[in-house]
Amino acid sequence: MIEGAQDRPRATDASTLGGANFRYYDFVMAAFVAILLLSNVIGAGKVAVVNLPVIGDWPFGAGILFFPVSYVIGDVLTEVYGYARARRVIWAGFAAVVFMAFMAWVVVKLPPAPDWKNQAAYEVIFGQVPRIVFASVCAFWAGEFVNSFVLARMKIWTGGRHLWTRTIGSTIAGQAVDSAIFYPLAFWGAEGWTNALVVKVLFTQWALKVGWEVLLTPVTYAVVGFLKRREGIDVFDRDTDFTPFRARV
């Protein structure tokens, strides 16, 4: 915790924080990485369907239910702790997803015991993970950095006011990049996926993710307000080096 933190957060330039320690930064990082990993393993490969009035059945990727929470947490990280610390978390998530892909590949390839009958089911669940994770890593890396950059810059433009404009605005940009990279890389030409379905799900996912961000805006306000009060700061990235190619704060 920064010494002298009060209930009222003080405006602080990110370049002055140095190696400051925070109460909740590690917990937010852990939540971000956990949601990222679970969304990639459990939800990314399944197409579900929802029945919309007038339109009828409309397909969507099942991961949409929880993955956008990682973008909300990404917004919270940048808004509360600044771009540099959000960048560090993005690289931690990147490393975790790469290791998950490697672990899944090794475990699937290990020869099963003669009396173990679940290899086929295991391969169905985890066998497609490398391609999906490769697409997810590329999309996540680009989308998260776009999201964080846009939010940090908009915070300067708005003088720290109107949080909803930058959380939603950054999500529109970041999720557009994420979806435009992920779905073609993950599913173009894949069995059961027509090109038309890929495009349809891509735009549906983008719209739903942005919609989720809008719906979760009150939650974002509550979490950001709580963390700023407890940490005692309100970080502005006025002199920040926005290169994504570093993990040091």
Results as ranks from 00 to 15, higher is better:
Arg10Ile: 10
Arg10Gln: 04
Arg10Asp: 03
Ala11Asp: 14
Thr12Pro: 10
Ala14Ser: 08
Leu17Val: 00
Asn21Ile: 15
Arg23Ser: 02
Tyr25Lys: 08
Asp26Glu: 15
Asp26His: 13
Phe27Asn: 11
Val28Phe: 02
Met29Glu: 12
Met29Trp: 09
Val33Glu: 07
Ala34Glu: 06
Ala34Tyr: 13
Leu36Pro: 07
Leu36Gln: 13
Ser39Asp: 11
Asn40Asp: 12
Gly43Glu: 03
Ala44Arg: 09
Lys46Cys: 04
Val47Pro: 05
Val47Gln: 11
Ala48Asp: 15
Pro53Val: 12
Val54Ser: 05
Asp57Thr: 06
Pro59Trp: 12
Gly61Trp: 13
Leu65Gln: 03
Pro68Phe: 05
Pro68Tyr: 01
Ile73Asp: 08
Gly74Ala: 07
Gly74Asn: 07
Leu77Gly: 00
Val80His: 08
Tyr81Ser: 09
Ala84Gln: 13
Ala84Phe: 04
Arg85Asp: 01
Arg87Asn: 08
Ile90Asn: 08
Ile90Arg: 03
Ala92His: 04
Val98Pro: 08
Met103Lys: 14
Ala104Leu: 10
Val106Pro: 01
Val107His: 13
Lys109Ala: 14
Ala113Leu: 13
Lys117Thr: 14
Ala120Pro: 02
Ala120Glu: 08
Ala121Ile: 05
Phe126Gly: 00
Gln128Arg: 15
Ile132Pro: 12
Val133Gln: 12
Ala135Trp: 05
Val137Gly: 11
Trp141Cys: 09
Ala142Pro: 03
Asn147Arg: 05
Ser148Phe: 00
Ser148Leu: 02
Val150Pro: 00
Val150Arg: 03
Lys155Val: 01
Lys155Asn: 02
Ile156Tyr: 07
Gly159Asn: 02
Gly160Leu: 00
Arg161Trp: 06
Arg161Tyr: 10
Trp164Ala: 09
Arg166Glu: 03
Thr167Ile: 15
Thr167His: 10
Thr167Gly: 09
Ile168Ser: 01
Gly169Asp: 07
Ser170Asp: 06
Thr171Glu: 09
Ile172Cys: 10
Ala173Lys: 04
Val177Ser: 12
Ser179Arg: 01
Ala180Leu: 10
Ala180Cys: 10
Leu185Gly: 09
Leu185Tyr: 08
Ala186Tyr: 02
Trp188Lys: 07
Ala190Gln: 10
Thr194Gln: 07
Ala196Trp: 15
Val198Leu: 01
Phe203Asn: 07
Thr204Gln: 09
Lys209His: 00
Gly211Cys: 04
Gly211Ser: 04
Trp212Leu: 12
Glu213Ile: 04
Glu213Lys: 06
Pro218Tyr: 01
Tyr221Gln: 00
Ala222Phe: 11
Ala222Leu: 13
Lys228Val: 02
Lys228Ser: 06
Glu231Ala: 01
Ile233Phe: 01
Asp234Thr: 07
Pro244Gly: 02
Pro244Lys: 00
Pro244Thr: 04
Arg246Lys: 13
Arg246Asp: 02
Arg248Tyr: 14
Arg248Val: 08
